[in-house]
């Protein structure tokens, strides 16, 4: 059941003495059939929750790696309903890893928020994160997703005030996604200097599990973040592996890189 799978994933990781590992991939890069195989390989490596990006023509929160990935997925004619269809087929085949959709608002709005919520829940999606939908604008959206039994994950960032942190925590179910630094998605050579202090401040207001993402790419960075968070999201560093011409090689590289990152997450 939706909602439950995400909570279970955090408990299971905690029981293993580590933060949850949450890899991100753009759905449909290079096509949805390969995305399905990548999900299996990431699960085999030990991923706890899978974040699937819905490609969008104007991804204002994404850096160059995810932008290019989104363009490849759109060239392969990836659509939101196609992505839901992929999740449904995976669930029918017994795939149990929780899936969170990471989207911009317009594709969801175009499908219709209610219709999307029903279709996503039936397909077996567990939660949804909309990068350009703050809680203030998401009241109808939250009601629709809650009615369908889907988790609504909102973002918090270093610029978020204490009062908003509380509001974001209240609006979020499943977990809160903390943006580790000001800027777009993408690999960085170092974590933000202020991250430890920022997370400590966030922790005072956020009681839900806290997953941290944006700019985390190496096992060393993942280990440092894991010590301060319930979950670690790695996106661009994995998406970069999809840039080569051979999806088979990309799948091997994904599984290997994911395993290395997970090995670094023990506390």
């Amino acid at each position: 059941m939706a909602g439950k799978r995400i909570a279970d994933a955090f408990s299971r990781a905690r029981a293993r003495g580590r933060a949850a590992f949450i890899p991100y991939l753009t759905a449909g890069d290079p096509d949805l059939a390969w995305t399905g195989r990548y999900l299996d390989r990431l699960t085999a490596s030990g991923a706890d929750i899978l974040e699937l990006g819905v490609p969008f023509s104007d991804p204002i929160a994404d850096g160059p790696v995810n932008q290019r990935s989104s363009e490849r997925a759109l060239r392969a004619r990836t659509t939101l309903s196609g992505i839901l269809d992929l999740v449904r087929r995976k669930r029918e085949a017994g795939f149990e890893t929780p899936v969170v959709l990471f989207s911009y608002f317009n594709p969801i709005l175009r499908m219709g928020v209610d219709r999307f919520a029903g279709a996503a829940a039936r397909a077996g999606v567990d939660g949804v994160l909309v990068v350009d939908l703050p809680p203030e604008e998401g009241k109808d959206y939250r009601a629709s997703l809650a009615a369908a039994g889907l988790d609504t994950i909102f973002l918090a960032s270093p610029t978020t005030s204490a009062e908003r942190l509380e509001r974001i925590d209240a609006a979020s179910t499943g977990f809160v996604y903390y943006v580790s630094r000001l800027g777009v998605t993408g690999t960085r050579t170092a974590l933000a200097d202020s991250l430890a202090a920022d997370l400590e401040r966030a922790r005072r207001k956020i009681v839900k599990p806290l997953a941290v993402g944006f700019g985390i790419s190496t096992p060393e960075q993942a280990a440092a973040v894991a010590a301060m968070a319930d979950g670690v999201v790695v996106g661009s560093a994995l998406v970069k592996l999809l840039e080569g011409p051979d999806p088979e090689k990309a799948a091997d590289a994904l599984e290997k890189t994911a395993a290395e990152l997970i090995a670094a997450l023990g506390k």
């Binding site: 604008e137 009241k139 973002l155 918090a156 960032s157 270093p158």
Partner: peptide
């Protein structure tokens, strides 16, 4: 649409990434 921020009838609002919400 039900937001209250800067609406012109149903239109407008503030659909921004979280990092921009405080600066806005």
């Amino acid at each position: 649409m039900s937001g209250q921020l800067g609406r012109f009838g149903d239109f407008g609002g503030c659909y921004a990434p979280e990092t921009l919400m405080e600066p806005l």
